[in-house]
Simulated assay, not measured.
Amino acid sequence: MRLKQSLPVAILVMAPVVAVCMILISISFGAKNITPGDVWGAIVHFDPNNVDHQIIRVSRLPRVIGALLIGAFLAVSGALMQGMTRNYLASPSMMGVSDGSVFLVTLAMVFLPSGGSVSLITLSMIGSALGAAIVFGIAWLIPNGMSPVRLAILGTIIGTFLSGVSAAVSSYFQISQGLSFWYNARLHQMDPELIKLSIPFAVVGLALALGLSKSITVLSLGDDVSASLGQRTTVVRILTILSVVILTGVSVALAGKIAFVGLIVPHIARFLTGVDYRWIIPVSGVLGGLFLAFCDILSRFVNQPFETPIGVVTALFGVPFFLYLIKTRGGGKNA
């Protein structure tokens, strides 16, 4: 028991050290390897005429910071969704939330091409809400629609439909090349200014998630237990969905759709910390950021000198894990 209680603290304490190591590795290795001296010089004494310094400041540093942030946002979103629904397969990519964001981003690029970065983030969040509303709305209407496997199948169907419509719209209006960023999740095209603009939204989403962590723990025990303890379950669910919408919308606006992070990481966090979401949520955020940064680094070595799409790398971990959950958990709810 003491180990279970001390492990989350150790993870959170060690996380900054591991994150710094990830940042240094990510900055140093790629199509062009950069020496530690150039990395230090780019950070401390930036020379705009030095090509290596430009690569570090403009490309690689925003890329790894974006990966850490996006991984954290998606993992926290997945933890919230799994706790709220007691569905071990719930995640932004499985429930159509990410696809809703891509869908509205597509419409925005067609009909609002002059929109700025803030409007992009806002529309992406609205799209997340749209995707979630469609999936959960239909699930409530069909028999046993909220069961894990049926909800996952429904989310996949709706997500595929939204992605298909997005692809059709982009092809018809000849903007496919511009939208390939959101379809392929190209972290190497991370926009530093967009990262800065997304921080206030992300802070609100994370603050909501942490503030709701105790209520999510109670909610994960079931509606009857939650009601008997006097919890306002409807309010908790609305605020939880709001947090998921904000965090997922920001993630998609930054780098497009990235699958499986929100599915895998909360299960690992739950295994390491227990059932208390006051620990699961922050540990999920930390592990999610490190996991996506690791996958991004791995994507550069799988098929050198070419980069493997980050979605392919996360799928290498996610698909076996998904099949493992189906085999071991069947159609039951989370405990």
Rank of each mutant, 00 (worst) to 15 (best):
residue 195 I to M: 12
residue 77 S to D: 02
residue 72 A to R: 10
residue 246 I to M: 08
residue 220 S to A: 15
residue 272 L to E: 04
residue 66 G to R: 13
residue 294 F to Q: 01
residue 150 R to S: 05
residue 127 G to T: 11
residue 82 Q to P: 03
residue 19 A to L: 14
residue 170 S to Q: 09
residue 159 G to M: 07
residue 150 R to L: 04
residue 163 S to V: 04
residue 174 Q to Y: 13
residue 88 Y to V: 02
residue 40 W to N: 04
residue 163 S to K: 04
residue 306 F to K: 00
residue 275 V to F: 13
residue 301 F to Q: 08
residue 74 L to Q: 01
residue 98 S to F: 12
residue 19 A to G: 06
residue 55 I to C: 04
residue 188 H to K: 03
residue 164 G to Q: 08
residue 194 L to N: 03
residue 117 S to E: 12
residue 21 C to Y: 14
residue 82 Q to I: 08
residue 226 S to Y: 08
residue 249 G to E: 12
residue 165 V to M: 11
residue 2 R to N: 13
residue 48 P to Q: 12
residue 151 L to Q: 01
residue 71 G to L: 07
residue 23 I to V: 15
residue 218 V to N: 02
residue 144 N to K: 11
residue 219 L to W: 11
residue 125 M to F: 08
residue 167 A to P: 00
residue 249 G to T: 10
residue 286 V to G: 00
residue 104 L to N: 04
residue 168 A to D: 06
residue 94 M to V: 14
residue 315 A to C: 03
residue 183 Y to A: 02
residue 278 R to I: 01
residue 18 V to Y: 10
residue 48 P to N: 13
residue 80 L to P: 02
residue 112 L to S: 10
residue 35 T to R: 07
residue 82 Q to N: 11
residue 266 P to G: 00
residue 244 V to H: 03
residue 3 L to E: 11
residue 197 L to M: 15
residue 330 G to V: 13
residue 193 E to A: 13
